[in-house]
């Protein structure tokens, strides 16, 4: 029982991180109908930026509780600003000129961009090894339940932090999309881009802002990933990115609540699978979910069936 509770906690924590990344995939897919392969790398850059700032700040201010708090806030702000700017530029340089080009062109461009970003970080930050780590952030936990075998399920403070930050970010994001003119413009572009532009919506600007918001959420996910694992490698964009995409597909691509739901489910599947079956095959389990979902219910849990227009 305690074991199950522990897996549940870890699964939800990891799932919130995947959910935040998945929102970026699903938004971009909803608005321009393209899988942004570079999104996983944007997440990784958010995490690496956070790591650099965290190390820099704590080495000047020490690791007292106050310093760690300031460092994490700075990480969050810097990661959000820099990755949003990065995604804006990626969109402007690599995707916008290709709208209306050869069908495969934006996909290949995104793939190339993803590879360029990953190796850029590799070349300029990971000269002496493929992993960077920080001392564990936010140690300490509360005990929840202990079973007969003496196994103790604990709720770490960092898990609480991750869940709270995710909830706040998703709240802000929900407000942005549902209640502001910007969100309205975005939803209209999603339905019909041509009609939206006829009605006076600046489509290019709306798409650019969509990319920036997606990157901001991915950056938050990156900071939380760093808090969760205390280490990050330049390779960490691809596999979590692919898992977050699976989450977006599972929840129903184009659906924002679906992305969060899918993220939580994928997090739970991954942790439960590595706990009860085999941790070697946890990636295989998640990717099999992707293939099975696409075969059995391509519209996902909360998505609408896709109608292909000529």
């Amino acid at each position: 029982m305690a074991e199950f509770v522990q897996y549940l906690i870890n699964g939800i924590t990891l799932g919130s991180i995947y959910g935040l990344i998945a929102v970026g995939y699903t938004m971009v897919f909803g608005i321009i109908g393209m899988v942004n392969f570079a999104h996983g790398e944007v997440f990784m850059i958010g995490a690496v930026t956070a790591l650099i700032i965290y190390v820099a700040v704590t080495s000047f201010m020490g690791t007292t509780a106050g310093a760690v708090f300031i460092a994490l806030m700075l990480c969050l702000v810097a990661a959000i600003l820099l990755t949003s700017l990065l995604n804006l530029i990626i969109e402007k340089v690599a995707y916008r000129p290709l709208r209306g080009s050869f069908r495969l062109a934006p996909l290949i461009s995104a793939l190339g961009m993803s590879y360029a970003l990953k190796n850029f970080v590799n070349v300029f930050q990971y000269e002496y090894g493929s992993n960077k780590s920080v001392p564990s952030i936010l140690t300490g936990h509360v005990s929840i339940i202990t079973d007969a075998n003496g196994f103790e399920a604990v709720l770490n403070y960092k898990n609480i932090l991750i869940m709270i930050v995710t909830a706040i970010m998703l709240g802000i994001f929900w407000y942005l999309v549902q209640k502001t003119p910007l969100g309205r413009a975005q939803r209209s572009c999603e339905q019909d881009r041509k009609m939206a532009s006829l009605l006076g919506v600046d489509v290019n600007r709306t798409i650019a802002i969509t990319f920036a918001i997606g990157a901001a959420l991915a950056a938050v996910a990156g900071v939380l990933y760093l808090v969760f694992y205390s280490s990050i490698s330049y390779n960490d964009g691809t596999i979590p990115g692919l898992k977050a995409f699976t989450a977006a597909v599972l929840g129903g691509i184009g659906s924002l609540p679906g992305a969060v739901l899918g993220g939580l489910l994928i997090g739970l599947i991954e942790i439960m699978w590595s706990g009860y079956v085999s941790s070697d095959y946890k990636d295989v389990a998640v990717f099999s979910v992707l293939i099975i979902v696409l075969i059995i219910m391509p519209q996902g849990i909360l998505g609408k069936p896709e109608v292909e227009k000529v």
């Binding site: 340089v93 690599a94 190339g112 590879y115 990953k118």
Partner: peptide, 16 residues
């Protein structure tokens, strides 16, 4: 170490 960086950028430039 630059080779995959060059290949990635090359793919983007080729598409453009």
């Amino acid at each position: 170490r630059l080779r995959m960086l060059i290949v990635g950028l090359g793919m983007v430039l080729m598409m453009l």
